[in-house]
């Protein structure tokens, strides 16, 4: 199970939880699993989020592998100039 750290503003959609344990081996599956556990996260995730896996920003790269011990953070979506 990978630990996913959410930003504080998402508490209202996760029954107050800021760290969610998710069984997934890619970023895409992790996001799907989050929605499955907390359906209210769907519009936020579908609107776009960034994900950091072990310190690497992997925005849009849902195929990125994750390991059970990976450090995962959900972040506000970023776009560059």
């Amino acid at each position: 199970m990978a630990e996913v750290n959410l930003w504080s503003g998402l508490r209202q959609f996760t029954d107050g939880e800021l760290v969610v344990n998710v069984k997934a081996d890619t970023v895409g599956k992790m996001l799907d699993e989050l929605i499955s556990i907390y359906p209210n996260l769907e519009p936020i995730i579908e609107a776009g989020v960034s994900v950091a896996v072990d310190g690497e920003m992997v925005a849009g790269a849902d195929h990125t592998p994750i390991k059970p011990e990976s450090e995962i953070f959900l972040l506000q979506q970023f776009k560059g100039g």
Partner: peptide
């Protein structure tokens, strides 16, 4: 620096 926790959460590489 490398290994420090960033202000936005992840650990810096």
């Amino acid at each position: 620096k490398e290994g420090s926790k960033s202000s936005f959460g992840p650990t810096f590489r």
